[in-house]
Structure formats: structure tokens, C-alpha cells
């Protein structure tokens, strides 16, 4: 059981990572990050239920709260960037380069 859950988590994480590394759209980037976070959450829950301890599930609650806050800030940044540069491709946003 835990094996399946961990496998699913791994799958989700790799998918998320692939999205972050392969897609240029800022929105999809966020989706990828969310996927990775939820992969981590799934892993937490899996271990929690396997060990019979509640720590993992508490951590998940924290992660969800922080992730939503992060999305709020992140989307705001992207909206500002979109207004300024008229693009949502992260490849075009290279102003932090040296």
C-alpha cells in the first residue's frame, strides 16, 4: 500500500519537475510546482498512515497553507510582469541575468 502511494508521489513529482523544466509558460510553471508540492504531501500522508503518527498530516496542512500563500504572491508577481513585459514566457524574463 505504502509502496503504491510512494510510487504515485514519485510519479507526480517527476511530472511536476518535467513541467517546470520543459514548459515556458509562467502559469504552467506554477502548476508544476503545485504538482511537486502535492507529491510531497502525498508522501507525507503515506508515511503518516504507515507509522500511525499524525506529524506528517500536520506538515501537510502547513504545506497547503504556505503553498496557497505562495501562489497568491507568485501570481501577483506574474501579473505585474505580464503587464510590464506583455509576455508570460519565463524565457523572456531574464532581467536578473548578471
Amino acid at each position: 500500500m505504502i509502496f503504491l502511494a510512494l510510487l504515485l508521489g514519485l510519479l507526480l513529482f517527476v511530472l511536476g519537475l518535467a513541467v517546470v523544466m520543459l514548459r515556458r509558460s509562467a502559469i504552467l510553471l506554477f502548476l508544476g510546482i503545485e504538482l511537486m508540492l502535492n507529491a510531497a504531501n502525498l508522501t507525507f500522508v503515506a508515511f503518516s498512515s504507515a507509522n500511525g503518527a499524525l506529524d506528517g498530516q500536520i506538515a501537510v496542512i502547513f504545506t497547503i497553507a504556505i503553498a496557497s500563500a505562495e501562489v497568491g504572491v507568485g501570481l501577483a508577481i506574474f501579473i505585474v510582469l505580464f503587464r510590464r513585459f506583455k509576455t508570460q514566457s519565463v524565457d523572456d524574463l531574464r532581467i536578473l541575468r548578471w
Partner: peptide, 10 residues
């Protein structure tokens, strides 16, 4: 540091 987000992720 080429400024490409995806490179940083890599």
C-alpha cells in the same frame, strides 16, 4: 547565471 529560470531549476 544566464537568467533563464528553467536553467536554474536544472
Amino acid at each position: 547565471h544566464n537568467g533563464n529560470l528553467r536553467t536554474y531549476a536544472l
